[in-house]
C-alpha cells in the first residue's frame, strides 16, 4: 500500500510539478490550494505526510500546522514546510508549531523528493 501525501500550495503549477515528481517515485498524491482546503482533504482520508507552503490566502501554512496538530489522527504526521531563504523567522515559527521538516524555495523536484524520502518511503 503506497503512502499518500497532501500537497498544499496556492500555486497550481507547484502542486502539479510536485505531484508529478512524487507520483513518479511511487507516492499517492492529493492536493489543496490553501489551509482551509487542506483541512477538508485530511478529513476521512489516511494521509502520511503533508507538504505545505507558508504564504497562502485564506489560511496560511503556520496556522494550518497548528490545526493539523489538533487532529487526533494527524497529530504525529510529518509536515514539510516550504520556506524561502529570506524567511528564517517563518521557518522557526513553523518548527515551533510542529512542522520539523522544510524545503527551501525555489527547489528542484529532486530536492523535494529527497526531503520526502527521508521521512517516508513509498
Amino acid at each position: 500500500m503506497s503512502k499518500t501525501i497532501l500537497i498544499v500550495d496556492d500555486s497550481a503549477s507547484v502542486r502539479q510539478v510536485v505531484s508529478i515528481a512524487l507520483r513518479g517515485a511511487g507516492y499517492e498524491v492529493v492536493t489543496a490550494a490553501d489551509g482551509q482546503d487542506a483541512l477538508k482533504q485530511l478529513d476521512g482520508k489516511r494521509i502520511h505526510l503533508i507538504i505545505s507552503d507558508v504564504n497562502m490566502p485564506n489560511m496560511d501554512g503556520i496556522t494550518l500546522v497548528g490545526e493539523v496538530k489538533k487532529l487526533p489522527s494527524y497529530k504525529f504526521t510529518p509536515i514539510i514546510m516550504l520556506t524561502t531563504e529570506s524567511q528564517e523567522d517563518k521557518k522557526r515559527q513553523a518548527q515551533a508549531a510542529g512542522a520539523k521538516a522544510w524545503v527551501t524555495k525555489p527547489f528542484q523536484p529532486a530536492q523535494m523528493l529527497a526531503a520526502v524520502s527521508k521521512l517516508i518511503m513509498p
Binding site: S13, V14, V17, N55, T84, K105, Q108
Partner: peptide, 12 residues
C-alpha cells in the same frame, strides 16, 4: 505572494 509564487514555480 505573486512574486514569491512565480519564483517558486519557475524554480521547479
Amino acid at each position: 505572494r505573486t512574486m514569491h509564487t512565480l519564483k517558486g514555480s519557475a524554480g521547479l
